[in-house]
């Protein structure tokens, strides 16, 4: 009994150090700023436009990766093929590179040369456009959704799919009626991770598109030009909106996803 208490005491002490470290800055930001100031900031058109733009482009990025990355995750989870482990490692690289370097890489790949000209002909410009912002967000956060979906599909027993086929479902209908619903939890978690990561993207976005300003760029811009007291309410407002949305999706998923 005594050793139990000692063990729990040590673990509680160590846990509280990191928990406080993670929570104190956010708490302090809200306390210092005050709810009134946050509410007032949220009425500023520039702030609202910026937060709206951030949420919108991050959502588009998530939707684009849902359509393209979920099939990729399924292929990786289901089929053995040559170079699969190399592909899996390559998909994780964007998470590891410095974000400004990723921004430069995106510019080199999609703004110049043949690919850049093709994009341009299609009306897709990178510099200072929402397309560019979406590309920057997507490049750095897509692995969260792809990996989440991959783990989800790995947990779906291939026998469910086999049985569905014998019951008359084509491969596509098997995917939508059995594979996807049973991997849904992990996919939604991956999408939430990707979305929250995309909302906070600064390094790559600022290289590609300073304007129109997404919230992280606006916070940086105000901090640089006007100081802490002018940027803190925007930061607090952005965090508040993200947390509310994040918790709502989680709650809905937990309530109806089981």
């Amino acid at each position: 009994m005594k050793s139990d208490r000692f063990f729990l005491g040590i673990f509680l002490l160590l846990s509280s150090v990191i928990a406080l470290f993670l929570m104190v800055p956010l708490g302090k930001l809200f306390i210092n700023t005050g709810l009134l100031s946050i509410a007032k900031t949220l009425t500023e058109p520039e702030v609202m436009d910026s937060i709206g733009l951030t949420l919108r482009t991050a959502l588009w990025a998530v939707l684009f990766v849902s359509v393209t990355g979920i099939p990729l995750a399924y292929l990786i989870a289901r089929y053995p093929f040559r170079g699969k482990s190399i592909l899996e490692a390559l998909l994780d690289i964007p998470v590891m590179v410095p974000h400004t370097a990723a921004g430069i890489a995106l510019l080199v790949a999609f703004n110049d040369g043949f690919v850049g000209r093709v994009f341009s002909a299609l009306g897709l410009e990178m510099i200072d456009t929402t397309t560019g912002i979406m590309a920057a967000m997507m490049f750095l956060s897509a692995p969260f959704l792809i990996n989440g979906a991959k783990e989800g599909f790995k947990k779906v027993d291939v026998k469910y799919e086999n049985v569905a086929r014998t019951l008359g479902a084509s491969p596509m209908r098997t995917f939508f009626s059995v594979s996807l619903p049973n991997a849904r939890g992990e996919i939604i978690n991956g999408a939430l991770m990707m979305w929250s990561r995309a909302l906070g993207e600064f390094g790559a976005v600022v290289i590609i598109a300073y304007h129109p300003m997404v919230a992280p760029v606006l916070i940086y811009d105000r901090f640089n030009n006007y100081g802490l007291s002018y940027s803190a309410p925007v930061a607090a407002a952005m965090i508040l909106v993200s947390v509310i949305l994040f918790l709502t999706v989680r709650l809905v998923n937990n309530r109806y996803g089981k």
Binding site: N162, V163, R165, T166, L167, G168, A169, S170
Partner: peptide, 8 residues
């Protein structure tokens, strides 16, 4: 498989 009509 979906065209065979076998139960499994």
């Amino acid at each position: 498989p979906e065209e065979r009509g076998f139960g499994f």
